[in-house]
Amino acid sequence: MPLSFLNGESFTTSATTYQHRPATAYETHPRLILRVAIEGLVTHAMVDTGGVYLFCHPMIARAIGFDASEGLGLQTLIFRQERVQGTLHRVTLTLLADEGDNMPIETTAFVPEASYEGISDMPSILGWHGCLDRFRFGVDPMTDTFYFGAPT
């Protein structure tokens, strides 16, 4: 179902239903959790408008078979006020549509080291910078619908 500006110009062209539940066992507030594909692997990712890049869970990275030598050497990023070490990769992240077209994004992904305990319980994360800030989206909390589309 497309969304349009008042002048009729297209705003978003696709939609998906999101899960609205806590992302971790120790959180009580529900998050927006989307169905995405990372390098063709279908999984869930949480929307985090305070984050950067695609934060790819190490378990998902292992399942995909990321080759550390293809990424940038060990980097330290700030994640939730903590310094976290990991590797940066170029990946295809695809937002999967219930209605309309899918949206593949060639983007930067950060894979924290598996030893980073803060991520153990979390899904992968769609951060703002370098990910969410690159396309149009809207949310209907009445129907748990996430609308999205490529910028024109």
Partner: peptide, 15 residues
């Protein structure tokens, strides 16, 4: 570094 950190590119693909 330039390839991995390039601005994201987006397209639509049929579902």
């Amino acid at each position: 570094y330039a390839r991995v950190l390039a601005p994201p590119t987006i397209k639509m693909a049929p579902s």
